[in-house]
Simulated scan of single mutants.
Amino acid sequence: MSGKFIVIEGLEGAGKSSVIEVVRNFIQALGQTCVCTREPGGTPMAEAIRECVKGDWQETVAEETELMLMYAARRQLLVNVIHPAMSKGEWVLGDRHDMSSLAYQGGGRQIPEDKLMALRTLCLQGFEPDLTLYLDVDPEEGLKRARGRGELDRIERSGMDFFQRTRDKYLQLAQASSTTVTINAMQPMAKVHEDVVAALKARLA
């Protein structure tokens, strides 16, 4: 595949949406076509799965169910959007990808690694992003920002302990990855954007 896959990761309230605009502008300035997508979602079927994942149900949503839905949506996105775009030389910019499942379901939900990795292997088949920008924010501040946008969804109401475990896992994953850059998202947004552009120039330009 001649295209590239760049992913923006982070907790709720980390500022992913504004950073995505910065990255998209950077990619287009390089003369590259940019396809933007999100997870879970990005195809009609994956968007329907997103509604299942985030919706409120009058029953317990098993942690394993949540995990399998995430990977089902991801597989649909890979097959129908990401792989075809990259095969045509287009760059794909993702709002979340596999690191989210490792952090949220692996770290936050504490699903055993062997169960998670079996699904991960089946879904991804060795595929990885070319670059991941992890926007690191304190969970309390992130949720405060998220509440300012409106009502929280089912996952966003999972509790502070859940989000602290998720952040801890994110930091662990980012430190271990040679293709991930951690950005301090507690800074003023202008400085966050400046750091993002610096990371993109260092890794891509």
Rank of each mutant, 00 (worst) to 15 (best):
G13R: 08
A14Y: 06
A14D: 08
G15R: 01
K16P: 10
K16F: 10
S18W: 07
S18R: 12
I20V: 06
I20Q: 09
I20L: 15
I20M: 12
E21G: 14
V22Y: 00
V22L: 04
V22F: 07
R24P: 05
R24V: 11
R24F: 05
N25C: 14
N25Q: 14
F26Q: 01
I27E: 03
A29C: 07
L30C: 09
G31M: 04
G31Q: 10
V35Y: 00
V35A: 09
C36T: 15
C36L: 09
T37Y: 05
T37L: 10
R38A: 11
E39F: 06
P40Q: 04
G41W: 07
G42N: 08
T43V: 08
T43Q: 05
M45V: 15
M45I: 14
A48W: 03
R50M: 08
C52F: 13
V53P: 02
V53L: 14
K54M: 14
K54G: 01
G55T: 00
G55P: 00
W57S: 13
Q58F: 07
Q58G: 15
E59S: 10
E59M: 12
E59G: 15
E59Q: 10
T60W: 04
V61T: 06
V61H: 00
V61Q: 06
A62S: 15
A62V: 05
E63A: 14
E63I: 10
E63T: 14
E64C: 08
E64K: 12
E66C: 05
L67R: 04
M68Y: 10
M68S: 06
L69Y: 07
L69M: 15
M70K: 06
M70C: 14
Y71H: 14
Y71R: 08
Y71W: 13
Y71C: 13
Y71K: 08
A72S: 11
A72R: 04
R75A: 11
R75N: 13
R75T: 05
Q76C: 12
L77S: 02
L77Q: 02
L77D: 02
L78K: 11
L78P: 11
V79P: 00
V79D: 14
V81G: 02
V81Q: 03
V81R: 12
I82G: 01
H83Y: 05
H83C: 02
P84T: 03
P84R: 03
A85T: 00
M86C: 13
M86R: 15
G89Q: 02
G89S: 01
G89L: 00
E90V: 00
W91F: 07
W91I: 01
V92L: 03
V92C: 00
L93I: 11
D95A: 07
H97D: 10
H97K: 01
D98G: 03
S100M: 05
S101P: 03
S101K: 06
L102H: 05
Y104H: 11
G107H: 10
R109W: 05
R109M: 12
R109T: 08
Q110R: 15
Q110C: 12
I111T: 00
I111G: 03
D114T: 13
D114L: 04
K115Y: 13
K115E: 09
K115Q: 14
M117Q: 15
M117R: 11
A118D: 08
A118G: 09
L119P: 03
R120I: 00
C123Q: 01
C123F: 04
Q125E: 15
Q125P: 07
Q125V: 12
G126L: 09
G126N: 08
G126C: 08
F127M: 12
F127C: 09
E128W: 10
D130Q: 10
D130E: 12
